[in-house]
Amino acid sequence: MTVSWSAYRRARRRSRQAWGVLAVFAVSALGALFWFFTAGQFAAAEPAASGPTEAPVFDPGWMKPVVPVHPVPPGTALSALDALAVKGRAGKDNYSREAFGQAWQDVDRNGCDTRNDILRRDLTAVVFMEGSTCRVAAGTFHEPYLGEFVDFRRGSESSRAVQIDHVVALGDAWQKGAQGLTAGERQSLANDPLNLIAADGPANQQKSAGDAATWLPKNKSIRCHYVARQISVKAAYGLWVTEAEKDAMKRVLGSCPDQQTVSAR
């Protein structure tokens, strides 16, 4: 059978087009596999963080405010951040928790210690110990750092699952100005509701004395509030930030430039 030259050329052209399509498909497939095995599998495995966008601060119905060294400046957290001093860390070899007073005192003198004040503020469906209007026995809450719902039950082991986090860790505060505060001012810093959030125990342990440059909540939806709260606490107690810490805070606030400072009043 005789095949014309024009038919032969058409067949060659269709063959080249087919091979071209196959080549594009192969490159796309290789690119997809490369993305999956480098970053995609982690993005697919990690669900988008969700949860509270802020945490409670103050309930005037039964809490009394703790007076800070300075009022929290009104306005944006970015403006307040720019007003904070930027310095390096001071030494911490002389740090002790006792420098901030006995843990969980009744600083606001409302008849209940600070830990139970914060549990009552942050939890819902609160149940008190029998015969008490202060000691929280149980409750539930939408935990802010992980964005998960948590049941709290008082007990020697179960209580550890929910801890009260110092938003500005006391060890961090000690290295960034708290050594220059009076004993009474440090006690206020450690018990100020502005600086306290009920949180997942393991997350709080992981944070330790970290600042925004070394630790941020896994729940991304609360990071703007969290960083604004740290800035507000540092402004209220005359503490400074490091350059790395300020850069980290600015990166977070870049997604929420209108985020306001946070006040306990």
Score class of each variant (00 low, 15 high):
R121M: 02
V24E: 11
C134W: 02
W62P: 06
Y237W: 14
C112H: 01
E148M: 10
G254W: 07
K234T: 15
W5H: 13
A83T: 07
N219H: 09
V262E: 06
A244K: 13
G177D: 05
A18V: 11
A137Q: 02
T182H: 12
R229V: 00
C224R: 03
G61R: 08
Q41T: 12
L196R: 06
L239M: 07
C134A: 02
G238Y: 01
R120W: 03
Y226E: 03
L216A: 04
D82E: 13
G31I: 10
R154C: 06
S4F: 09
M249H: 04
A213S: 15
S208L: 14
F141L: 03
H142G: 08
R251C: 11
A7F: 13
E54F: 09
A190E: 07
P68C: 02
D172A: 12
D258F: 08
S15A: 13
T2I: 11
D93W: 09
S159F: 06
D59S: 04
D108A: 14
G155F: 06
Q187M: 11
N204K: 04
L123V: 02
N191V: 14
M129F: 15
L123E: 00
G40K: 01
S132H: 11
D165M: 05
Q102D: 10
M249W: 03
A29L: 15
L253M: 13
R160Y: 10
L81F: 08
D82K: 00
L253D: 03
S156M: 10
S156A: 12
R14V: 15
L194I: 07
F37V: 15
W240S: 11
G131I: 05
P257A: 10
A90F: 11
F141E: 03
A85M: 13
H142P: 06
V27W: 07
R154V: 06
L189K: 01
A43L: 15
D93Y: 05
A23Q: 06
W104S: 05
N110G: 14
H70W: 09
A43Q: 14
T114V: 02
R14K: 15
W240F: 06
G20A: 13
L84G: 03
A198R: 00
V21P: 05
Q187S: 08
H70Q: 13
H70D: 11
G254T: 12
I164A: 02
H166E: 04
Y95R: 01
Y8T: 09
S132C: 05
F100L: 06
